[in-house]
Nucleic acid binder design. Structure first.
Length: 560
DNA sequence: AAACATAGCAACCGCGGGGTC
DNA sequence: CGACCCCGCGGTTGCTATGTT
């Protein structure tokens, strides 16, 4: 092993390359037998050596590179270098608009599966895509924009539904079904068609979102995975960005929010009632308490340009999240229509927050880890096994594999759950999309993703049918239905849901699944909550808890 | 012009899956 | 069946370039 040094390259190195030449001890230096491996930036000489090696020996067996080429790099490093920079046919340079669109679409569908995404983008590497996405996230986070354009979310969800419905993939298979691995996965040609349709339409007065906002306002704080708060931006900068978001003029911003104020007094109220919720504006002190929680969760609204005296408090609550979890933009979207008066209670809340466990638990929620995914999958499996063994058909009309009803109901809930296993999946961001409509933002970004959400979910507008008096004959079921509707995801899915008249059953299934997951004690808590009226105001919170981490359920169950 | 902040990128690290012995 | 190794993936870190004050 010649102790090769790339002196010739040093001249090409950044000024600190000398430091990069630091030869660090490699922990994986099995092949070198104590050989010291180089870390840091690659030199052109190293590149050449690696390229040469790969030409001769092909890819793979990276640990052998060091042995055979004299390159003092660990196999990992070689592989990475090759894959990300030296591999032929690599596309360099900025992503094209098409690529960006594809990435957004893919990410909406599969989350942080960079390698898989890269497979759909010839010449692009996972690392590149990852970096792009992280950058994009930050950008949008700063801008207070939702992570996805609503259409993307809907599109992704629709495709999911289509995949299931047409593919006949039942719940069991679904767990292993990877839409992207199926041949019929197509990236929609038209995703952003509507993006500009509504551009400039302000004030934005979506109906549905506020339903969920109501729930948000009413839910307990501990339930939120979205406890990430807007990044602490210097006031000036935030203002600047805010104004950037409203290219028209600052006045338009004001108008937009003005109407939101009206909206909250009006539509929100009605909507909340229509779905059996107490209005967030009801001056019930206890409710208000919850509201303050909701504000926390939705506090991102402020980053949309709605400044508030509460802003500084964000710092106090600023929490670190793994890179991709923040649906902070979602958060912001959700909170877009939050009431300013409530913000005051944010401060109160912040000063006396709930037990730290609440936040910690949620902030470290496995949302990003797919744990919920796993749990739900397990639940599903358990349920399935249970059904098989006891042939109990309490909530399904038949037990055929195709069991349209059952599988569809499951599909309605599960696809998004599965997808939600990913931090930023269609349903994980359905709320984003939904509430992004609340965001009176007329984006001025140049790239597609900077465009404001434009299309309203007219189809979703307060699908109150489920809580139509006709359904009140079964209060418990109705309550669970409310529970269901308290989930923005479900609201998003209501387009489909409304066609399937399976609301109650779905909730029943959901309930069962949860019961299975929680075990008897927690399940009884859950059911108790779910059957009580209080759940209508906490349904989302509870669901959210379940969504994000089970322990939080306990906490919620203690909620008055 | 300097100091500081931020964005973007490249590389590293830790972990887990799969294969082999 | 378990230990070991290789490989790949996703998350994180560190550095540089660029923008802002």
């Amino acid at each position: 092993m010649t102790c090769k040094r790339d002196d010739s390259d040093d001249e090409m190195l950044p000024k600190d390359q000398a430091e990069s030449q630091l030869i660090n001890e490699s922990n994986g230096g099995s092949s070198g037998g104590g050989a010291v491996l180089k870390k840091g930036p690659w030199t052109s000489t190293e590149d050449a050596i690696l390229v040469d090696y790969v030409k001769k020996h092909g890819e793979g067996n990276w640990n052998a590179v060091q042995k055979h080429s004299g390159l003092f790099r660990c196999g990992k490093s070689c592989r990475l270098r090759w894959a990300n920079h030296l591999r032929p046919n690599l596309k360099k340079g900025a992503f094209t608009a098409e690529e960006e669109q594809v990435i957004i679409e893919l990410h909406a569908k599969m989350g942080n599966k960079w390698a898989r995404m890269a497979a759909h983008l010839p010449g692009r590497t996972d690392n590149e895509i990852k970096n792009y996405w992280n950058t994009r996230i930050k950008r949008r986070q700063r801008a207070g924009l939702p992570l996805y354009p609503p259409e993307v979310t809907v599109q992704a969800y629709q495709e999911d539904q289509l995949d299931q419905n047409t593919g006949g993939v039942d719940g069991e298979d679904r767990g292993q079904h990877d839409p992207l691995q199926s041949n019929n996965y197509d990236i929609p040609d038209v995703i952003f068609d509507n993006l500009s349709a509504n551009q400039g339409i302000l004030p934005y007065v979506p109906e549905l979102p506020d339903i969920s906002v109501s729930n948000m306002l009413l839910k307990g704080v501990g339930s939120s995975p979205y406890c990430t708060l807007p990044p602490m931006l210097p006031q000036q900068k935030r203002f600047r960005e805010s104004t950037d978001l409203f290219p028209g003029s600052s006045g338009s911003v004001g108008n937009g929010f003005c109407s939101f104020e009206q909206f909250r007094d009006d539509t929100c109220h009605k909507v909340a009632r229509s779905i059996g919720l107490s209005s967030p504006l009801d001056s019930d002190p206890t409710t208000k308490n919850s509201q303050s929680f909701g504000v926390i969760q939705g506090s991102h609204s402020l980053s949309n340009g709605n400044s508030s005296a509460s802003e500084p408090t964000y710092g106090a609550l600023k929490l670190e999240l793994p890179s991709l979890q923040y649906t902070e933009t979602d958060l912001g979207s959700w909170g877009t229509s939050l009431q300013r008066p409530l913000l005051e209670s944010v401060d109160a809340f912040i000063q006396s927050p709930p037990p730290s466990g609440a936040f910690e638990a949620d902030c470290s929620s496995p949302r990003n880890s797919g744990l919920l995914d796993a749990l739900l999958h397990e639940s599903k499996t358990l349920r399935s096994a249970k059904n098989r063994s006891s042939d109990k058909s309490s909530n399904s009309s038949s037990a055929t594999p195709g069991d349209k009803a059952d599988s569809s109901t499951l599909n309605i809930c599960e696809p998004e759950w599965e997808d939600c296993g990913d931090p930023i999946s269609p349903l994980g961001h359905s709320a984003t999309s939904l509430f992004s409509e609340c965001t009176p933002i007329s984006a001025c970004g140049s790239s597609l993703d900077e465009q404001p959400p434009a299309e309203t979910f007219t189809g979703i507008s307060v699908k109150s049918e489920p809580v139509d008096p006709a359904l009140t004959l079964d209060m418990e079921k109705e309550t669970t239905t409310r529970l269901n509707f308290s989930r923005p995801d479900v609201l998003l899915a209501s387009d489909w849901l409304q066609q399937s008249s399976g609301y109650i059953k779905e909730q029943s299934i959901m309930s069962d699944a949860i019961a299975t997951l929680l075990g008897d004690d927690l399940a009884s808590d859950y059911k108790h909550l779910a059957s009580g009226t209080s759940i209508s105001s906490q349904g989302w919170g509870l669901n959210s808890c379940l969504w994000n981490n089970m322990p939080a359920v306990c906490q919620m169950s203690d909620h008055p």
